[in-house]
Design a protein around this nucleic acid. Structure first.
Length: 694
RNA sequence: GCGAGGGUGGCGGAAUUGGUAGACGCACCAGCCUUAGGAGCUGGCGCCGCGAGGCAUGUGGGUUCGAGUCCCACCCUUCGCACCA
């Protein structure tokens, strides 16, 4: 969906720093390619509710990213060069309209452009804004600056003249590229108005009162009753929005509107890697799509990037081509697609990798959606949202996967694995040194005080802790663990170290414990194979084993695999406590091996077969706890006095409240703490504790 | 700055979701065994205290018979912020 744009065009700002500042694109018409993800904003938002097996955290982030906000689009009339115009703004706080004391527009807004032509100072400021930060994170931190444009607009309800400023905190890409400023009830407007001495008019009664003295307080922005608003005084937020929208509607100067934070997805990249955009630019036919029988457009492989601009532009044999429509000389598009494009549908493509006539075929209908998707939490928004968009677009455009709206049924987002990073800048350029090659010195609190490269003792700079990445050369290679301990130990340790959703500072210092455990399993199985087992069952050990199994099965459901690994360890410890070999040993070992099999498949497979428990452990039924083994006729209760632990009692399973209370009072240590005081209240929590309040 | 996570012993982490804080491991300490130990076994191991006991889950408040868990404020930290360069 190519959209022609000009860097200086007013209607639609081009996002991205390369566009604004790069000499490459200055003053040139640029075809830029977008995917219309905004057309799906509503659906992508609504469908989040139908993803029960996605983490709430991820759904919330997507919701905020899509950013649906309901408000009012309203107009401030003005005249420019004698022509009647309207400055449109979007606001979610129409209730504060009577408090608007000025308007602010983005540097790309027509009013800014108009004023820039008349006033070189404004032109300079507008240029400065355009060259400045465009990334949200940078934008939020820059100092708020502005200049009056000299243009005045009319307040749609009061008829007051309000000045229009151009301000660097107004984004052309959101809403109308212009805002009404209500300094009394908006933090940014407050800051701006305070700085430039613009009037601040309170129109909402907030929890701190009716005035808004500096400094800014969050309460000023709260919903409240209208004041200083003429006929609207006394209305609450919703009543005020409705009334004001109605007033504006009558004048044709406003209506309720839904705005989205989500923007269309600009996919053009001036990079070598990425799929070429299959368009040919013909002087007579315009932009012509490359016909199906000439697809795919292949990237040249004889190219040496020199670090400036898009290297594809420097390859005439790639650029020069014929127009597919008229056959005359034409230029091939050299933009390539964002790599997120590829990652948005590879999973569907994996269903039919040898299909060479279409994106996907009927095999995708069968396999999709992906049952369980696993990826890092860093993909919570972009990759996962683009994929959800692509899935919808693919079913509409290819006729495949009808009715499959969502690509991933279940989602597990791993935490990031973090590591320290170090660099030297001896050569003037940062050279990243792998943590494995660095020796560190720490203070008593474990903070790094100095670090050197182990090989030659040169000092290196500690750059803090963060995600493992190629660019910072701070990755660790699991192959070392596999070579030293074997794949089962490496797997077991990885599972045991922390729950998969946690961020983890990698350390393999404690891997020995996992190795020891697996050796002990092997050893236990060996001894079992040579033992004569009695037929008897040990009730206590059986209870422990089946309790652990029950918990472990719950934990698998909750995707907490570290406690499953520790349950395996506890089961082996319980088995080791058995005085003699009996039926409990056999049952417990069979449970242990199956529970352990996904974590240490090689070892358990071998033992299962070696013990003649069966052929293939992967095909065995998953172990379930025996309810009979979980029965207990006596339970232990904790006794507290004033919430502090003072003792414990054993009570029959069926004991009633009165009996429990009596036993609790009879406990000698409890008596010591109750002695001579009134028991005002007794709290009995069945199966847990008794608390005597004195 | 905004959005979403996280903060519990020397370390990784556990805590049945408001009910015995520190499971299971690592490291450490003591003892046993051994010609030897970077093997194995037994025991100990949050902090203060001889002890009874007291204090402890980032900080400060609050709710509750009872708070790691709920509420308010703050601090630190990780991920994302639209081109992973």
């Amino acid at each position: 969906d190519p959209v022609d744009q000009t860097v200086l065009a007013n209607e639609q700002v081009i996002e991205g720093r390369g566009w604004r500042t790069g000499a490459l694109v200055e003053k040139r018409e640029i075809p830029m390619y977008f995917f219309r993800i905004t057309a799906y904003a509503d659906e992508l938002l609504a469908a989040l509710d139908q993803l029960p097996n996605w983490p709430e955290q991820v759904k919330l982030m997507q919701k905020n990213w899509i950013g649906k906000s309901e408000g009012v689009r309203l107009g401030f009339p003005y005249s420019l060069d004698g022509k009647a115009q309207t400055l449109w703004v979007f606001t979610t706080r129409a209730d504060t309209l009577l408090g608007a004391t000025f308007c602010a527009v983005a540097a790309e807004h027509p009013i800014a452009t108009f004023s820039a032509k008349r006033d070189p100072k404004i032109a300079a400021f507008v240029e400065e804004c355009k060259k400045g930060a465009v990334m949200e994170a940078e934008l939020a931190q820059i100092e708020k600056k502005g200049m009056p444009t000299g243009v005045f607009v009319t307040h749609p309800l009061t008829g007051d003249k309000l000045p229009v400023w151009v301000a660097n905190y107004v984004l052309m890409g959101y809403g109308e590229g212009a805002v009404m400023a209500v300094p009394a009830h908006d933090e940014r407007d407050f800051e701006f108005a305070s700085k430039y001495g613009l009037p601040i008019k309170p129109v909402i009664r907030h929890p701190l009162g009716d005035t808004v003295p500096a400094p800014w307080k969050a309460e000023y922005a709260e919903y409240g009753t209208l004041i200083n608003s003429g006929q609207h005084d006394g209305l609450n937020y919703q009543q005020a929005v409705d009334a004001i929208a109605a007033d504006l509607g009558k004048k044709g100067l406003g209506e309720k509107q839904v705005q989205w934070r989500l923007r269309d997805w600009g996919i053009s990249r001036q990079r070598y890697w990425g799929c070429p955009v299959p368009i040919v630019h013909c002087p007579s036919c315009g932009d012509v799509p490359v016909p199906d029988d000439q697809l795919p457009v292949r990237l040249p492989e004889n190219l040496v990037p020199d670090g400036t601009g898009n290297p594809l532009n420097k390859l005439p044999e790639f650029v020069n081509t014929q127009c597919p429509s008229c056959g005359r000389a034409a230029k091939r598009e050299t933009d390539t697609m964002d790599t997120f494009v590829d990652s948005s549908w590879y999973f569907a493509r994996f269903c039919c990798p040898d299909q060479n006539q279409a994106m996907v075929d009927e095999r995708a209908d069968y396999w999709m959606p992906v049952d369980q998707y696993i990826g890092g939490i860093e993909h919570a928004i972009l990759h996962l949202l683009y994929s959800r968009f692509f899935q919808r677009a693919m079913s509409e455009e290819t006729g495949r996967m009808q009715g499959i709206k969502e690509p991933f049924s279940r989602l597990l987002t791993q935490g990031m694995v973090l590591a320290e990073s170090y660099y030297t800048d001896a050569s003037g350029r940062r050279e990243w040194v792998n943590p494995a090659d660095v020796t560190v010195e720490r203070d008593a609190k474990g903070k790094i005080v100095s670090a050197k490269r182990t090989a030659d003792g040169t000092a290196v700079v500690y750059d803090g802790i963060g995600t493992m990445s190629k660019s910072k050369n701070n990755g660790v290679d699991p192959q070392k663990l596999i070579d030293q301990y074997g794949a089962d130990t490496a797997r077991f340790y990885t599972m045991f170290a922390s729950p998969p959703t946690n961020t983890l500072e990698w350390s393999d210092e404690s891997v020995e414990g996992s190795f020891r455990f697996l050796k002990n399993v092997w050893d236990y199985a060996y001894r079992f194979s040579r033992a004569q087992c009695k037929d008897s069952l040990d009730r206590k050990v059986r209870f422990q084993i089946h309790s652990e199994l029950k918990k472990a099965n719950d934990d698998i459901e909750r995707q907490k695999f570290n406690t499953v690994a520790s349950a395996c360890m506890k089961i082996l410890n319980a088995l080791d406590d058995l005085e003699e070999w009996d039926a409990t040993s056999r049952e417990g070992l069979a449970i242990l091996l199956r529970l352990l099999s996904p974590i240490a498949p090689h070892l358990t497979h071998h033992l299962w077969r070696g013990l003649k428990f069966g052929e293939d452990i992967m095909k065995e039924k998953w172990p379930e706890p025996d309810p009979a083994a979980l029965e207990q006729d006596e339970i232990e209760l904790v006794v507290q006095v004033n919430g502090k632990l003072r003792g414990s009692i054993k009570v029959p399973k069926a004991a009633d409240r009165a009996a429990i209370e009596e036993l609790a009072r009879a406990n000698p240590n409890v008596q010591r703490f109750v002695a001579g005081q009134n028991v005002k209240k007794v709290v009995v929590v069945p199966g847990r504790l008794v608390n005597l309040v004195v």
